[in-house]
């Protein structure tokens, strides 16, 4: 089998790609997609660890399932937020959404 470290490196790389997307993309939907990439990287990690460390107990799988749930919830709420922002401002460029500034 392919060794564990390969999976970990793949996952780390995917995570960092996602990270870059979150930091650098202008469009909010793209940011959301990047977040999904990061979550997937985490899931890959969990499943890989499960396979190589505790294959008899479904610990990693269970957590991966929970991550899946969180991802689904996040996508739904995030996209709803983006939609409602789009309705108000007619754009979703993250840089210009600076309401946090006083």
């Amino acid at each position: 089998m392919v060794p564990l470290s390969w999976y970990l490196i793949t996952s780390a790389l995917l995570f960092c790609i996602g990270l870059y997307g979150v930091f650098a993309r202008r469009n909010a939907v793209a940011v959301l997609m990047s977040i999904e990439l990061m979550l997937n990287a985490v899931n890959l990690n969990l499943v890989a660890f499960w396979r190589f460390q505790t294959p008899t107990r479904p610990v990693g799988l269970a957590f991966a399932v929970f991550v899946l749930v969180v991802a689904a919830a996040e996508a739904a709420v995030g996209l709803a937020l983006i939609l409602s922002i789009y309705r108000q401002r007619k754009h979703i460029v993250v840089e210009d959404l600076d309401l946090l500034k006083l």
């Binding site: 780390a12 990270l19 840089e95």
Partner: peptide, 24 residues
């Protein structure tokens, strides 16, 4: 596609990746 700070973002991501590889 990118905002003005994408080089910084690239740097930080690369740093993080290097860190992760180091730990792994």
């Amino acid at each position: 596609a990118m905002n003005s700070q994408w080089p910084w973002a690239l740097l930080v991501s690369a740093l993080t990746f290097a860190l992760l590889v180091y730990i792994i």
